[in-house]
C-alpha cells in the first residue's frame, strides 16, 4: 500500500517521533509506514486520517496493479484507492 504520509507530516513540520506520540505508536512504525514497509492497522490509519483532517483514502492508496476491477453491475461512481 502506498501513502503520502511523509509529505503531510513534513508539511505540518512534525518529526516522525512527534507524529508517533500523537497517534500512540513508536517512531519506527511511522518510519516503516512512510517507507511502504508496513501497512498500518485500520485503527492506526483512522487515527492518522483524523490527525491530518482527511480521509484514509487521502493518505493511503493501492498501487494501480493491486486495485480490484469494478464489477460491471456496480452503479456507484466512487473511486477506489484515491
Amino acid at each position: 500500500m502506498q501513502n503520502n504520509l511523509s509529505e503531510r507530516r513534513t508539511d505540518e513540520g512534525l518529526s516522525q517521533g512527534e507524529l508517533a506520540e500523537v497517534v500512540d505508536v513508536t517512531r519506527q512504525t511511522i518510519n516503516a509506514i512512510e517507507r511502504d514497509r508496513y501497512d498500518p492497522s485500520l485503527e492506526l490509519a483512522l487515527k492518522l486520517a483524523i490527525h491530518f483532517d482527511c480521509t484514509v483514502q487521502d493518505l493511503f492508496h493501492l498501487p494501480p496493479d493491486d486495485r480490484p476491477t469494478p464489477s460491471s453491475d456496480t452503479s456507484s461512481n466512487e473511486t477506489v484507492g484515491g
Binding site: 508517533a20 500512540d24 505508536v25 513508536t26 512504525t29 508496513y38 498500518p40 492497522s41 485503527e43
Partner: peptide, 10 residues
C-alpha cells in the same frame, strides 16, 4: 510511553 505497538506484535 509507547514501548511496543501494533508493528511489534505483527
Amino acid at each position: 510511553r509507547t514501548l511496543q505497538d501494533e508493528r511489534d506484535y505483527e
